[in-house]
Design a protein around this nucleic acid. Structure first.
Lengths: 181, 181
DNA sequence: ACCTGAACACCGTTCAAGT
DNA sequence: ACCTGAACACCGTTCAAGT
């Protein structure tokens, strides 16, 4: 059967989950598909765009957030949902951050949050959502890096409850600042 | 003259400024010092620790923030000061973020901010400063990446004023959420 | 003690050549 | 059209050997 971009993205995601972003190389992806590394470049222009496709695939798994009237509550559900999908794939936060900063990727993780801000008539929705996204990606990147360091036993197991508490604290203070109390 | 860790860090910082983080390789650092790559490993255990030393050197350039009574104003000055030093070296935000997440680096950029929070009797100073740091590193990483993309002429020149306005907006909403109005 | 030279085990990417 | 084989120009790191 012929190679597909779909198949390549799937193989890349599997390697991400099993070996992490540092070991997600074009050669490994090709090997797992039983193909030469050069063959990938017939379906994908370069590694960066493959990574963007993987990031999009992960972000697309995010559940739709039901929007009650309160924009603060919508943002809270949005933030928790984003953190949740990121936690389902190894190094996902770092991956999404790197594609986000380069402006690659078709999926906009901020869409629903921004709409909630606009619907509520709040100012500067773009800058607000960018700030929230920076916090979430930074926080989850820290969580996932600590998980990996612990798995390599170069550090003690991280306190999962404390991580979630700190996330809720940061999310809460930002929502407070956005919605005004 | 013999090689020093100081000299290696200085050479690495110069390469960072001139060529960026992606081109900051051990071989390039060695070349600029007129030495073989292997020689660096007599003074530095690995690349990651060299990067941490460079990050520390940059963070040490940060001016001390005078602390007036209002904790919100202290945090604002602290945040602006951190962004300023980061903007003085190419890719500095990405570099600091990567060493911060690994727990490397001796310099704690959050020290003064955390002290201001504690002095004001505010809750969860660690989680609060972590959230602020994530926002700042994420925002400035975006700024510096856009600068580079424009320099490679793959994108139009970024709007510097808009970047600063968005930074002030994000910093402002977080401080509002921290201090309560 | 400090550095060279050379190797090891990799990378991303390109491209003529095959089918 | 799609893939192989092989190369190009790199990496970080190690280590015997020299001085």
């Amino acid at each position: 059967m012929a190679l597909t971009k779909q198949a390549i993205v799937g193989a890349a995601l599997a390697i991400l989950d099993d070996y992490g972003l540092a070991d997600l190389t074009m050669r490994r992806v090709a090997d797992s598909l039983g193909v030469q590394a050069g063959a990938l470049y017939y379906h994908v222009p370069n590694k960066q765009s493959l990574l963007a496709a993987v990031a999009d695939h992960i972000l697309a798994e995010r559940p739709a957030v039901s929007t009650p009237g309160d924009p603060g509550e919508t943002l809270r559900l949005w933030g928790r949902g984003l953190r949740s999908v990121l936690l389902t794939h190894r190094d996902a936060a770092e991956l999404v951050a790197s594609t986000q900063v380069l402006g690659l990727g078709e999926v906009d993780p901020c869409l629903e949050g921004r709409e909630a801000l606009i619907a509520a008539g709040l100012q500067q929705p773009d800058a607000t959502m960018a700030a929230l996204l920076h916090f979430i990606l930074g926080h989850v990147t820290g969580e996932q890096t600590r998980l990996q360091l612990a798995q390599l036993s170069v550090a003690t197991a991280p306190d999962e409850a404390a991580s979630e508490r700190d996330f809720e604290w940061g999310l809460g203070l930002m929502i407070r600042g956005i919605c005004g109390r």
